[in-house]
Design a protein around this nucleic acid. Structure first.
Lengths: 188, 188
DNA sequence: GGAGCCATGTAAGTAGTTACATGATTGA
DNA sequence: TCAATCATGTAACTACTTACATGGCTCC
């Protein structure tokens, strides 16, 4: 039987499996790597750390004494085993929540201008996301034996972000062109 | 000030703005058109209809008497105005929840097999979604004056689904190839 | 010595899912 | 007549967000 954690809990466990980190560091690395596909808010992060601790999946490393008292956490043996179980279990079924697209479905009852506004809003949002992605160079992890270890994850996820965002921007451009070229015959 | 409804509430309002429908019919059309990007569960749908009714945004049409007693709902004037307000308001910021991708970030600590399993799981899921989309031919709405009215929405959203799904499948293929070609030098 | 960030945490609320219940109706 | 689907609804729960609170540190 697989332990029952929230996806965010598993995500935190995942980051701790790579190295010891404080909550704040998890927040940073999560934003950098999976920010686009899995946001973590503070109100989730810190309580989850406490829960994972109580479940014996993570344990504190030392006591906070460095600059800006950060509590560093480390995966326990149980935590590692649980994480591996989750990684091999079937993923939750595909589901999205995309309010902007729902609006696009209904917007043309207001005329082509409203629809174009929504398409351009979408294009702006995804262009911004692309800018953010562009600056990130995914890091490979170097293991503790001093060898280079090929780590696919960060590169794959980064490439996924680019692929996805580019596809959406391309669709926006085609949609805008198509609406504009038809709108001269729009019935007012 | 824009009225405060859940996105699902607005979606329901949107479908009723096109024509009168029962809850069950909303469920069907929603699944067909925005199912990929905005799922609606029964436990949301029916209570939301009651709330929209109490807010005066929709009203019952007749009393259930046809085959399989369906309560049909229609948009009120207030409902139409509220919907238009929502359509013009800025959309919620872009956000995703994609568990499978999070796993892909961490999976290679189990070796290339586990990572390939996840990539193939993703490919299967999106291929199934593509199959489902392929059978749908988006319908244009015919207005009550008997004229053909070009309605972009359904076609655009349908095309979006195809574009998105294809981009993901393409990424899966590239990722699988890349992992397989590197895995012969994998360190056990 | 004050502005502003660092780091953690809490409380209240929201949106949604799953699982179940019900009773009617249709089709083999 | 019995299974399946139709159509609506409810209850319990889960995950997550937002907004706020706190106190320390840093830098000019």
């Amino acid at each position: 039987m697989t332990l029952n954690l929230s996806p965010t809990g598993w995500t935190i466990l995942g980051f701790l499996s790579l190295q010891e980190r404080s909550g704040y560091e998890i927040r940073e690395v999560a934003k950098r790597t999976v920010g686009l596909v899995w946001g973590i808010s503070d109100g989730q992060l810190y309580p989850q750390l406490q829960e994972l601790h109580q479940s014996g999946l993570i344990e504190p490393v030392g006591t906070p004494e460095g600059p800006r008292s950060r509590q560093v956490w480390r995966l326990t043996g149980d935590g590692g085993a649980a994480l591996h179980g989750w990684l091999r279990a079937p993923s939750a079924p595909l589901q999205m929540r995309d309010e902007n697209l729902v609006k696009i479905l209904f917007a043309d009852q207001l005329g082509p201008g409203a629809l174009l506004d929504l398409l351009e809003e979408r294009r702006r949002n995804y262009s911004a996301a692309r800018e953010a992605l562009r600056d990130i160079v995914p890091r490979a992890r170097r293991d503790n034996h001093g060898h280079d270890e090929t780590v696919f994850g960060p590169g794959l996820v980064h490439l996924y972000g680019l692929t996805f965002v580019d596809a959406v921007i391309g669709w926006c451009d085609r949609a805008i062109t198509s609406v504009m070229s038809s709108s001269h015959q729009w019935r007012v």
